[in-house]
Design a protein around this nucleic acid. Structure first.
Length: 637
RNA sequence: GCCAGUGUAGCGCAACGGCAGCGCAACUGAUUUGUAAUCAGUAGGUUGUAGGUUCGAAUCCUAUCACUGGCUCCA
């Protein structure tokens, strides 16, 4: 007998040569059904792993993050096997588990169509039915290379060659299919019943657009059909929150074929935007920022000096004025720098925090455009801070705190990423080291977790990015903090220090919302169009019961407007049920219903968006309530 | 930009080689209504655009533009 240590500190006695699966079976039948993989002595492994005396064991199900990865990864193998059966000669590349499922990239003749997807799903179902055991085997490096060469899996040669020297090279076999893989995997294909292929796309080998385009198929897999159905339903629901759909329904913004990637803001969207910016200006004023505005178009010489001409040429738009080339600004910094340079600064003047709601134009690839989320012109809530090197950490922390405050007003969850020096960037290694360290130390001081993105910085400096999620879970970069030691150098910026000498300031570029357009897109999806009272383009709509109540309604509207409340009047000759339905579809926080009773009592019947309940208000109380919500950046209740 | 898909009335959709239609919206009239759709009628189209195949094209082919999902890029 052997003794196995379980996570709850208990010890389980098992016969010699027992597997992790045997342990699961001994605990309960349901666990035996659900177990996907095991962690033995801290290492993830298959449930067929034979246990030794003294091993510690944790069993993994789909409830665990590790379990989701295992099942999804097995799903990708299942799909790859089906594809290889249907399209002989297809070469495998990589097929990982991802956040919401898995994909596999194939190099094949031709492409995969929607029709093929059905055939692949049918073949996958067949393989599930065959219930093939999934077995691990290990080869030496040489054997492994020979094995993949025999199988004509030439991409795998590169993968094996890139494996570290000491790495054990394992494969997983299910029936006729075998794939290089670290594992672990579920025990058999029969466990992968609840799957669905969700998309076919092209994807470049190694993600490099100079490489060959591969066929990528995305899929999802769950232990149970009910979970799969629930997930698909959730996706359907999320689509109803899509800002492009809501933007149309709520008449907030539009796109025209004449302006791909150039959004139009409509009256209601404009209110939303202006309310957001009023809030932004107030907070930035409090935080010590001064707002400026710089020109949209500036002479090409400026862009040579800033380095954009060399590093950002492809993304810029150009125009000619009096036979000279001008650039339509893709960033606000060079113009901002000119404004900074207008006078001399003492060290006592720093930090200078100069903000600009600057409209920038960038030539994004046509295939990259997406509603308000990725456009070709957008307004950055930009600011440039000119500081001494000693002020780096303190100022970066202040910015992080400001951004955190703003995101919390909207109940956003976000994550931060630190991006380091990219290829084709300006400046010395030393500058980059100081700059990167400045950002890193601020992050460490704040103590919030962040992800490291090697080589993803701006061409002039490293950055901290803030990412928010849209309705279907895609992360979009919004806030950003970029530390720049190049621009001050190139524009010969300086301030007079306490020693009376000239010194070079450090420049911080930062945006909190990022792009107003993108942020509004996220905001629309976040609230599903039902904006809190303070943000709602229309805060209240007055609905009359009959024409007899029009005068009173007009009177109420005049008074609400005078109080600064955004109000509309629906005095059409329609039934009140119909008017309520329309106001609901417009997601207006308050409906004020005025009929015989209200005229008599000189009050308001107010129907709340949140509960659908109707409450009687005096005009004054209603105004007070909306004013309070507006002031507190709040929603109803 | 690349791969795949989709473009039909303001919006959502049907017709898939044989007369371009439905619902909502719009307009007109009736109805004066109490908490998610009152009734009747009218009008609205060079089927994204340009070529081609065909007796005949929304439908098939080619090109192009836009959009959608990815890749790449990025706020």
């Amino acid at each position: 007998m052997i003794n196995i240590h379980l996570p709850d500190q208990s010890i389980m006695e098992l016969p010699e040569n027992s597997t992790a699966y045997d342990a699961a079976r001994k605990i309960s039948r349901s666990l035996a059904k659900e177990v996907l993989a095991a962690i033995v002595n801290g290492k993830e492994t298959d449930i067929t792993t034979v246990l030794k005396d003294g091993d510690s064991l944790r069993l993994i199900t789909f409830e665990d993050d590790e379990g989701k990865v295992v099942m999804r990864h097995s799903g990708s193998h299942l799909m790859a096997q089906a594809v290889k059966r249907l399209f002989p000669g297809t070469q495998l590349t990589i097929g990982p588990a991802i956040e919401n499922g898995f994909y596999y990239d194939f190099d094949m003749e031709g492409t995969i169509s929607a029709h093929d997807i059905e055939a692949i799903e049918a073949e996958m179902a067949k393989i599930v039915k065959e219930d093939l055991p999934i077995e691990r085997f290990v080869l030496s490096r040489e054997e492994a290379l020979n094995f993949v060469k025999e199988q004509k899996e030439f991409y795998k040669i590169e993968l094996i060659e890139n494996l570290p020297e000491e790495e054990e090279i394992s494969f997983y076999r299910q029936g006729e299919f075998a794939d290089l893989c670290a594992g672990p995997h579920v025990a058999s294909t029969g466990m992968l019943r609840a799957f669905k292929l969700t998309a076919v796309t092209g994807a470049y080998w190694h993600g490099d657009s100079d490489n060959k385009m591969l066929q990528r198929v995305y899929g999802i897999v769950f232990p149970k059909k009910t979970q799969l159905d629930a997930y698909l339903l959730m996706l359907e629901e999320a689509k109803k929150r899509d800002h492009r759909k809501l933007g149309k329904e709520l008449d907030l913004f539009m796109m025209a074929e004449e302006g791909p990637g150039f959004p139009f803001f409509l009256p209601k969207g404009m209110i939303l935007r202006n309310v957001l910016l009023d809030f932004w200006r107030k907070k930035h004023d409090e935080a010590g920022y001064q707002e400026i505005s710089t020109p949209l178009i500036l002479n090409e010489s400026l862009w040579h000096q800033s380095g954009h001409w060399d590093h950002y040429k492809e993304n810029m738009y150009y125009t000619t004025i009096d036979e000279q080339t001008f650039v339509i600004k893709p960033m606000n910094c060079p113009g901002g720098v000119l404004a900074f340079k207008r006078r001399m600064y003492s060290y006592r003047d720093l930090p200078q925090r100069i903000s600009e709601l600057g409209l920038v134009h960038r030539h994004e690839l046509s295939g990259a455009l997406h509603g308000l989320m990725r456009v070709r012109n957008f307004t950055q809530d930009d600011a440039h801070l000119y500081i001494t090197p000693e002020q780096i950490q303190e100022e970066v922390i202040k910015i992080i705190e400001l951004i955190d405050y703003i995101y919390k007003v909207f109940d956003f969850e976000y994550h931060m990423e630190l991006s380091t020096r990219p290829e084709n960037s300006m400046g010395t290694d030393e500058d980059w080291e100081i700059a990167t360290e400045g950002l890193r130390s601020a992050l460490e001081a704040i103590g919030q977790p962040y992800k490291l993105n090697e080589g993803d910085g701006a061409f002039y400096g490293p950055k901290i990015d803030f990412h928010l999620r849209d309705s279907i879970g895609r992360a979009w970069q919004c806030g950003t903090i970029q530390l720049d030691m190049q621009m001050p150098e190139r524009f010969d910026l300086n301030y007079i220090g306490a020693d009376g000498e000239r010194h070079r300031p450090v420049m911080l570029h930062r945006a909190a919302l990022g792009s107003i357009e993108r942020f509004l897109g996220i905001l629309i999806e976040h609230y599903a169009g039902a904006f809190p009272t303070w943000l709602a383009p229309v805060q209240a709509r007055i609905l009359t019961i009959t024409d007899a109540h029009k005068d009173y309604a007009q009177d109420v509207m005049t008074k609400l407007k005078a109080a600064g409340i955004r109000v509309e009047l629906d005095d059409r000759n329609e039934k009140v049920g119909f008017k309520i339905r329309e106001a609901r579809l417009q997601k207006i926080p308050y409906m004020i219903i005025l009929g015989e009773q209200e005229v008599e009592k000189k009050n308001l019947s107010v129907r709340l968006r949140k509960t659908g309940k109707t409450i009687e208000f005096s005009l004054e109380d209603f105004i007070a309530r909306v004013e309070k919500e507006t002031e507190n950046l709040a929603d109803q209740n």
